[in-house]
Amino acid sequence: MDKLLRDKKAIVIFVAPAFLLFTFVLFIPICQSVYYSFCNYDALTKPEFIGLGNYKQLFTIDRTMKIAFKNSMFFLIFSVVTQLIAGLILAALLTNIKKGRDFFKNVYYLPCVLSSAALGLLWMFIFTPKLGINQVLAQFGIKGPLWLMDTKGYIILPMWVIASVSLWQYVGQSMMLYMAQISGISSSLYEASYIDGCTKAKAFRYITLPLIRPMVATAMSLNAIGSLKFFDLIFNMTEGGPNHMTDVLATHLYQQGFKYFKYGYASAIGTVLLVLCLIVTFIINKFVKVDNYEM
């Protein structure tokens, strides 16, 4: 290994693919996008530098941006909290059952590997008043709400519906991460605690939780970033409607960029999204304390 690390040629060969990929696919486009965010740019004519014009419009005039920001924040909080709790509960339950563990693991993880576009359409049909759940409710004499069109309240019903569908889709991923970490905890720790009179609940509280904290931080960061750039379910279920009420930052970006060809403005939204992702990741890593124990 030492010999390999002294060989500069080998280092360059091993690092080059990742470096080139990162530079050309990620770093340069991000830099370009940040530059375009200061321009009036429609992709057909040359970008015209307008300074902070796009950001000024974004934060002072754009009504949809306010809604999208609020919805993205709601999504972020909802996803991080619910996926943490539901993922942990499922992981704890599944690691404690012997029969059917693999079956349920696959069942909970299955939505993660399915196409979000297909799932979005499926759930859209389910919540369409004429076709889905409301027809079932009508059989019992119950008039169902407009799941994807109701606009009452600060956080409107369609956002709760989409967030719940997203929880259903992605909880398997959090569960798998926690399960991987839990299965790495030595059984001798639990055995010792049971000999000392510890209950299962206490063992979970005082052994499992502290030992999976590094994974909690990782899963929370992944969930937070994933929910901030969340797009596919919303686009397929509501397209941001009615009247932009279910728009999030990513759908707003898409509309401005690819529907109205305002690439400069869309780049400004993209830059805000990037900064938000960095801030959220920093906050989670700063405040979720991670102690390393030998397991």
């Binding site: 369409t128 008043p129 004429k130 076709l131 407009l146 799941w147 994807l148 069109m149």
Partner: peptide, 11 residues
């Protein structure tokens, strides 16, 4: 129709 708010064009 009662479901106009949620109905698509096709529906």
């Amino acid at each position: 129709q009662e479901t106009a708010a949620g109905d698509t064009n096709d529906v």
